[in-house]
Design a protein around this nucleic acid. Sequence first.
DNA 1: GCTTACACGTGACCC
DNA 2: TGGGTCACGTGTAAG
Lengths: 159, 159
Amino acid sequence: MAQSFEAPTQRPTKRRGRKPGPRPNGPTVSHVEAERQRREKLSCRFCDLRAAVPTVSRMDKASLLAAAAATYIIELRVRVARLEADARKASAVRWEPSSDTGGAASSHAAASALTAARLDEAVEVRMVGCDAVAVRVTTTGGARHAPACLMGALRSLDL
Amino acid sequence: MAQSFEAPTQRPTKRRGRKPGPRPNGPTVSHVEAERQRREKLSCRFCDLRAAVPTVSRMDKASLLAAAAATYIIELRVRVARLEADARKASAVRWEPSSDTGGAASSHAAASALTAARLDEAVEVRMVGCDAVAVRVTTTGGARHAPACLMGALRSLDL
DNA sequence: GCTTACACGTGACCC
DNA sequence: TGGGTCACGTGTAAG
C-alpha cells in the first residue's frame, strides 16, 4: 500500500503502459491482480537489494543476486569474522589463540579465570589488572543475541 | 556454468513436468529456450542467496530478498563499521577518557558503553568485539576490594 | 534481424 | 473453499 507506483530506479523505461485495458471485472481478475501485486513487491525488493549493495552499478536481476550472495555477503561475513578475531586477539584480554568457530578447543586453564557453562551458553570471566575484568559469553547456536544478553545481565546487576 | 539441471534445493516439487511436449522445433523456439535459461539462472541465484543468508529458513523470494537486503547486509555493514572503529580506537582495553574530544567519538560509544556511579565507586562497561565486555570498577579511595566485589557480583549472576 | 532482459497473463499447485 | 506462490510461454522494448 505504500509504494505509489513503480520506480525501479534502475530501469526507468516503463516498458508497457500497464493495464492495457480497463478491468472488465471478469471472474479471474483476482489472480491476475494478485500476481501483479506479487510482481510489484518482488521488483521493489530487487530495488532495495540494489540500494543495499553498493558495488552494483547496472546489473540484471540474476547478476545482482549473484553479487549479493556470492560476493558481498560472504565477503562481509569473512570480514566480520576476521575483525572480531582481531579485536579479540589484539585486546589486552587474550582469550585463546584458537580459531573462532568450529572446533574451538578450549583446553587451557588460566590462573584467575572461572568458566561456567550451561546447556547452550558459556561465560568466561578473567581478571585484567586489578580493577577490571573481561567477560565473554558464547552461545552454541547463533552468537547474535549474545551481546544483548550480556549487557542485559550486567545491567541487571544494578552496579 | 555447470548447473546440470534444476535443483531448487528449496522447492523440490517440480510443479510441472517441464517441457510438456517434445520440442516441435517450431519457429519461435529460440526465445522460449532463452527464457528458460534465464529462469534457470535466476532460480539458481536465488538458491545461492538462500544458502548465503543463514537466518532464513523457508521464505518466499520476496521475503528472501527483503531479508537479504534490509536485515542481513545492513546489519553486517554496521557491524563492520563498528568493528573497524573499535579496532582503530581501542586495540587494547585502554580506558582512555571516553569523552575525549566529544566530536565524532560517538561512533563506537553509542549504546555500547554505559557508566554508572555511586557514592564511592564507579563501574565502566565497554563492549569488546561482539560477544565480550570489559568491566572496570574504580573506587575513590583506591581500595583493594574492588575486584573481589566485582567478581562476587559477577558470580552472583549465576550465568 | 539477431540477442538479452523484463513484465504480463495464465495454468497449476499448495495451504 | 480461495488466497498465495511459482514456472511457463509470449509480447515487447532496448543494445
